[in-house]
């Protein structure tokens, strides 16, 4: 982790009519950091993430991602980020190899690069034997790990993970987080939303959103100290109970 900031947000706000989905949030994320983005359903996490990914324009405030402005340079941002959604984001009716070719292709990687990188990913995941199998025939845990590898296939500066481990068994989750650590060590910044508090403990820093605002932002250790509890679970519950807004 260095001091180079890859995501900065200053008073970032998004309003839908008179509903303030995201209310003036400010934070910075350093290069190579694993940044946990927590909040109950409806707290505004997804909206905030969509703004950072260039899918949605902020109403006011400032933000840069990978050094590019979210208002004017969303195309450049898109080239420099990876994204994995909570829904499984590979094509079930394509083979493992075809999925990698496709995603590598739309990010403009050369044929040669796609080939090299595919071999490397298959070797890392020990999936050489499965490369020509349709993705739908793979077990969920493998699919999830493959989806993550595909999200960082083009070696983005930042990868956004939206509840990446939903429905996955604890062993696979563990392996998944090892992959995240590996990616962070290679200099990729990881921006992750999750509902699992044990996963929050794995993050370098955690922010907790309540009703569109960031109510707490620190390392898991400091947060536990600040709220005087033993677990992140308690921290989250203390904050989330303050919420007025209903989950959608």
């Amino acid at each position: 982790m260095t001091d180079e900031k890859v995501i900065t947000a200053k008073a970032l706000t998004k309003k839908f009519a008179d509903f303030i989905a995201v209310n003036a949030i400010s934070f910075e994320v350093s290069k190579g950091e694993i940044f946990g983005f927590l909040g109950a359903n409806g707290a505004g996490k997804t909206t905030a993430m969509r703004m950072l990914c260039g899918l949605s324009l902020p109403t006011s405030g400032e933000a840069t991602v990978a050094g590019f402005d979210v208002y004017k340079e969303s195309e450049k941002i898109k080239k420099n980020i990876g994204y994995m959604s909570q829904k499984f984001s590979l094509y079930e009716d394509l083979t493992v190899k075809e999925n990698m070719r496709f995603y590598g292709g739309i990010y403009g990687l050369t044929e040669k690069r796609i080939k090299e990188k595919s071999q490397q990913v298959l070797a890392d995941l020990h999936m050489e034997a499965e490369q020509n199998k349709l993705v739908k025939s793979l077990p969920l845990g493998w699919k999830q790990k493959l989806a993550f590898s595909v999200a960082i296939f083009h070696e983005p500066a930042i990868v956004f993970l939206d509840e990446p481990t939903g429905g996955v068994d604890p062993v696979t989750r563990r392996e998944f987080w090892e992959m995240i650590y590996q990616a962070a060590q290679n200099g990729t910044t990881v921006f992750v939303t999750t509902h699992y508090m044990d996963e929050a403990e794995y993050c370098n820093r955690v922010s907790i959103m309540v009703d569109g605002r960031i109510e707490a932002l620190d390392t898991p250790t400091n947060l536990k100290k600040q709220f005087n509890t033993a677990s992140m679970d308690e921290v989250f519950l203390q904050l989330a109970r303050k919420a007025v807004r209903q989950a959608d």
């Binding site: 990914c53 899918l55 898109k78 994204y83 829904k87 499984f88 984001s89 739309i106 403009g108």
Partner: peptide, 13 residues
């Protein structure tokens, strides 16, 4: 439905 559209929209396409 499968969620791949979101991934495509986040891509430079």
């Amino acid at each position: 439905e499968t969620g791949t559209m979101e991934v495509l929209l986040v891509s430079p396409l």
